[in-house]
């Protein structure tokens, strides 16, 4: 599943992350594989509890342990398996080669340190030998300028509570990009923001990607955000990637019943809205508990296309539909005709 001529920055292979709780074992990430290409954005979509964030935290190796544990698979950063690294070596990668920003800009910054101090801290951790104290302050101001914060010389000595939510997320981005990482993991970066600010932040991330050339893993439940920013999309359900495709294929010919259901539940001007009810279609049922997954396909209880085979003991394997289109389903949906972008 490659786009020719691109450099593979990160390769996740058969990743399995489990949580060992008192109620049993939950496989939060179940045999997940994907590649991240240089300068491209991979979107990971799914409902709450589908394993998106755990996948991201696994890549950072920040799964709280106990109870969590990465049990199988490989995470190759430019060919090197970071799961083999010692914790001290991993610290050299966090914030340096792979950075992460989070959903809650209001609480993700430490309230008792200045914005500048917190950006300088990441430089101090990774570029102590390269930059002096004064250099680090300059760099912090430069980063604030880069993420579009007005009068950064003044803002650098302010505290998080003096900034708005959108500004704080910009500070988070500045902090994450200060060391020039290969990969930026953005875990629902716009969910907690106003719609207008959301657009600004996404635009900023796109622009910075063009300028700096880093890869982005964007975790979201918002397919609109995916359409605007991502090159490739992985749809997750109950810890598995049920469909993987480039963004055009996914929106034009979704093949997994779950993906199809998700796309249909986006409000649009199409005829998908049930005229009589005036309501958007939804996916019936509930996400099953990870402690108690049914045998076979984990989507069986909600699928309109379910058969006896889906309820069997085998869960559907990863299958290649086309060159860059992978799906885990026994009965892929046939697609006729193009569907427009939402």
């Amino acid at each position: 599943m490659s786009e020719q001529g691109l450099e593979k920055v990160l390769e996740v292979k058969d990743l399995v992350t489990r949580f060992h709780g008192e109620g049993g074992v939950a496989t939060a990430v179940n045999s997940v594989s994907f590649d991240v290409w240089k300068g491209k954005t991979l979107g990971i979509v799914g409902e709450s509890g589908s394993g998106k964030s755990v996948t991201a935290l696994s890549i950072m190796r920040l799964i709280p342990s106990p109870p969590g544990k990465i049990e199988e698979g490989q995470i190759l950063l430019r060919g090197q398996n970071i799961l083999d690294l010692k914790e001290s070596e991993m610290r050299g990668i966090r914030g340096n080669k792979i950075s992460m920003i989070f959903q809650e800009p209001m609480t993700s910054l430490n309230p008792v340190f200045t914005v500048g101090n917190q950006i300088e801290e990441v430089l101090h951790l990774h570029q102590k030998d390269l930059l002096s104290k004064a250099d680090r302050t300059d760099k912090a101001i430069e980063m604030l300028h880069l993420v579009g914060i007005p009068s950064p010389e003044k803002r650098v000595s302010e505290y998080p509570h003096q900034l708005s939510g959108g500004m704080r997320q910009r500070v988070m981005i500045a902090m994450a990009l200060a060391c020039g990482p290969d990969i930026l993991i953005a875990d629902e970066p716009t969910t907690a923001l106003d719609v207008t600010i959301q657009a600004q932040i996404l635009e900023l991330m796109n622009k910075l990607q063009d300028d700096l050339g880093m890869s982005i893993i964007l975790i979201t439940h918002d397919l609109g955000v995916v359409a605007e920013t991502c090159h490739e999309v992985a749809v997750m359900y109950c810890g598995q990637i049920v469909e993987f495709a480039d963004v055009h294929t996914l929106f034009s010919s979704p093949s997994h019943p779950y993906t199809k259901g998700l796309l249909e539940s986006i409000p649009s001007f199409d005829s998908t809205v049930d005229k009589k009810e005036g309501r958007l279609p939804t996916i019936e049922g509930m996400v099953p508990s990870l402690f108690d997954l049914p045998p076979g396909c984990s989507f069986q209880n909600r699928c309109f296309n379910v058969s006896q085979k889906c309820r069997g003991s085998e869960s559907p394997p990863s299958e290649k539909l086309e060159k860059n289109h992978i799906i885990r389903c026994f009965h892929p949906v046939e697609n006729q005709g193009e569907r427009t972008h939402p």
């Binding site: 610290r91 990668i93 309230p111 951790l125």
Partner: peptide
């Protein structure tokens, strides 16, 4: 368990 602690860890702090 605050978010800013997770941020600090994600920066590569001990």
């Amino acid at each position: 368990y605050q978010d800013y602690v997770r941020t600090a860890r994600s920066k590569g702090m001990t």
